[in-house]
Simulated assay, not measured.
Amino acid sequence: MEAIGTFTVTAFVPAEPPEPVGEAVATGVPVGLATMEKRFEGEVAGRSATLFTSAFDEAAGNGTYLALESFDGALHGRRGTFCFVHSKSMADGASRTDFFTVVPGSGTGELAGISGGGSLDVDADGTHRVRFDYELA
């Protein structure tokens, strides 16, 4: 099944990365860590709590982010919780690779047994969209 919705980021809180194990490693892009909260509307309705990491040079448009989201809400009216993870890499401001998957075994309630993937996209007008391509066991 496919569920599509829009979302807004309602909180973005930068955090200090933990102290490295051993000697720190300097790279060509800064590494960041943050927590986020999002609100979803449409066939995907609810909220998520997100752990967000990145290695990104905003000025050059080069880098990657990785996010792990814990979702509480509904897909097509089926209520429950589950986790999903997604990442995107960019070079010179253009998307290069995407990854999006539901975490196996993370579903609860009417979303128990959920599996699948999806995507996150931003429209030209700034609207943020999410799509889940999912199955329920």
Rank of each mutant, 00 (worst) to 15 (best):
G80Y: 08
S119Y: 05
V103I: 09
S106V: 07
T108K: 11
T101N: 14
G107D: 08
C83A: 08
S115K: 08
T27N: 14
V9C: 07
F82W: 00
T108S: 15
T35C: 12
L111I: 11
A67D: 10
Y134V: 06
P30N: 04
A11G: 13
H76M: 02
L66H: 10
P104A: 03
L51S: 12
R79P: 01
A60K: 12
G63L: 06
S54Q: 02
T101F: 13
A24P: 15
V21T: 14
E69M: 13
I4H: 00
T127D: 05
G109V: 12
M36P: 01
R47A: 10
G109C: 11
V25E: 10
T101P: 11
V85W: 04
D123L: 11
T64F: 09
V103C: 00
G73P: 01
A60V: 07
H128R: 15
G77N: 13
T27P: 00
G5P: 00
D125S: 12
G118Y: 03
G73H: 01
G63N: 00
L111K: 04
G113Y: 08
V44Y: 04
F40R: 01
C83D: 14
E23F: 13
P30M: 00
A45T: 15
C83S: 12
G109W: 12
M36V: 14
T101W: 09
I114R: 04
D57W: 02
G61M: 00
C83K: 08
E58H: 11
R78P: 11
F100R: 08
H76Y: 08
A94N: 13
D123R: 14
A137W: 05
G22M: 00
V9K: 11
T127P: 03
Y134R: 09
K38C: 04
V9A: 08
F40S: 02
F99E: 15
G32V: 01
V102S: 00
E2N: 08
P104C: 06
G117Y: 03
T35V: 10
T97W: 13
D121R: 10
F100I: 04
F56C: 02
G42V: 15
M90Y: 04
V130W: 00
A49N: 06
